[in-house]
Design a protein around this nucleic acid. Structure first.
Length: 107
DNA sequence: TTAATGACCTATC
DNA sequence: CGATAGGCCATTA
């Protein structure tokens, strides 16, 4: 089990219609300092079909300017397709769509 | 092995 | 409130 795999497990557990931040994923992965590593892990993205990196945004809820899905707006479109709304600044309402793993009801 | 970079976050001026 | 500097961890050359 590598640091990356742990991060992938967290990202893959993100439900549709919600988004998570790098710092939060890093924290769930085990260390809050892995924020940069999380971004790197998603950058390599060995399994984009099972790793919805488009549901991962930064602390400000903004998407990456150098997204690899075919355009930063592509990520926004995917999230909107999930039901996530965006602001005129291209940011997500973390206060409304921020993923809460503790509220998942356990399972 | 050392040096440099990165889809980040936090604190300070 | 806006911009700049530093720190952290892992990967790559």
């Amino acid at each position: 089990m590598s640091t990356f795999e742990r991060i992938y497990e967290i990202v893959k557990k993100i439900p549709a219609g919600k988004v998570a931040t790098y710092g939060q994923i890093a924290l769930l992965a085990g260390n809050p300092r892995w924020a940069r590593v999380v971004g790197y892990a998603l950058h390599v993205n060995p399994d984009p079909e099972h790793i919805p990196c488009f549901r991962v945004v930064n602390r400000a809820g903004e998407v990456s300017p150098a997204f690899a899905f075919g355009g930063e707006n592509m990520q926004i479109a995917l999230l909107q397709n999930e039901g996530v709304t965006f602001t005129a600044e291209g940011r997500v309402d973390l206060k409304k769509y921020l993923w809460h793993p503790e509220t998942e009801g356990g399972n």
